[in-house]
Amino acid sequence: MGLTFPLLATVTWLAALGAVALRRPVYAALSLVVALLGLAAIFLTLEAQFLGMVQILVYVGAVVVLVVFVIQFTRNDEVPLTGLAFRPVSLGVGIAVLVTGGLIACIAGTPEWAVKPPEGPPPGMRQIGEGLMGVYVPALEAMGVLLTVALIGAVLIAMRGRSTSLH
């Protein structure tokens, strides 16, 4: 119990690091899979089983598959594919470190957050269903519209790209 979270956290973080740092996009995508699975496991430790499953289904099952497809589709062998893809000390990394440092400082500076979760089981599927079909119906509907629009938009953008390339 005591070791579960640090282990998962370490694996997730390292996998995330690989996902952005590996030169080969396919490796990066695979590393992302690991990171996402780690996150799903962490969700489970938070007793958010439903969300963990959603995370695996949506991200690992859909998003990453999409990413892999695109990677295959845009394969380009001219780029050297070994080692890290960026210099460790660069402006971008500096900014990222700065932001992370700020966040950590903020967390560390807030003692109220060093709390354990309350006893008893958290709300389950029932509450989720009532929330989705009750207060959050408009949001759910908007989400559906958004996904439809995104679907059509994605298809249109991809198609238009082909037509311009044909000219």
Binding site: L91, G102, A105, C106
Partner: peptide, 16 residues
């Protein structure tokens, strides 16, 4: 994006 990041960092520092 970098500019965005700098802005975000600044915001964060102020919030912290």
């Amino acid at each position: 994006l970098r500019a965005l990041g700098v802005g975000f960092a600044t915001l964060l520092l102020i919030l912290t």
